[in-house]
Simulated scan of single mutants.
Amino acid sequence: MSLFRKPQPLAVLVVRDAPEVVAALRSALEAAPDAERPGLERALALAEESAGRPDAELRGRWVRQRLDAAGHQGPADSVEAIKILRRAEPGLTLLQAVTYAKEAAASEA
């Protein structure tokens, strides 16, 4: 093992199709009858809110979902949580699991 290894890229990708969803909702809202407008307006507001969330927050939510599925209710950045996360996602390196766990803990604070 070398101390000068290249850092591993993050393994969890955040897929963002929110701009397309927002555009589709705006388009639907323009042509919507009055009865459908309130629901579409609410959906548009939610999609715009979601589109503004940082990637770290979305990865933090991903971590919490994995931990909840394993029954872990403690801090997301605990040693036990990192072990659980690595068991749930065997492809994660220790560094990746720690990084994601810290992001999850920060988003929960």
Rank of each mutant, 00 (worst) to 15 (best):
L13H: 14
A47T: 04
H72N: 08
P9W: 01
Y100R: 02
G91E: 15
A56I: 04
A23I: 00
R42E: 14
A70F: 08
G60S: 03
L92T: 02
L10C: 12
Q96L: 09
P19D: 09
L40P: 00
A109D: 14
G74E: 12
L92A: 02
A43E: 10
L10V: 12
E103S: 09
R42W: 10
Q73V: 14
D77K: 00
E80T: 13
K6D: 12
A70D: 07
H72M: 07
A109H: 13
T93F: 07
V15I: 15
E20F: 13
L40M: 00
R61W: 08
P19L: 09
K83Q: 15
E48W: 04
G91N: 10
P75E: 15
R26A: 05
A23L: 00
A43M: 07
A69N: 01
E49R: 13
L3Y: 11
A106K: 08
W62I: 00
E36W: 02
A32M: 00
W62L: 04
A109R: 15
L44V: 05
D55Q: 09
R59D: 04
V79L: 13
D17R: 09
L85K: 03
S50Q: 15
G71Q: 01
R37A: 07
R53N: 06
E48V: 08
T99Y: 01
R59I: 08
V12C: 07
W62G: 02
E89A: 08
E36H: 06
L85I: 06
D55E: 15
L46A: 15
A18L: 13
V15Y: 11
E41R: 13
D55W: 05
L94C: 04
A81C: 00
A32E: 00
L44A: 06
A104T: 05
A31R: 14
G71I: 01
V14N: 01
F4M: 13
P19Q: 12
D17Q: 10
S78G: 01
R16V: 12
R61A: 14
E20W: 10
E103V: 06
R5T: 13
L13P: 11
S107H: 11
A32G: 00
G39Y: 04
L46M: 12
V98L: 05
L29Y: 03
K102H: 11
R66A: 14
L85W: 03
G39Q: 01
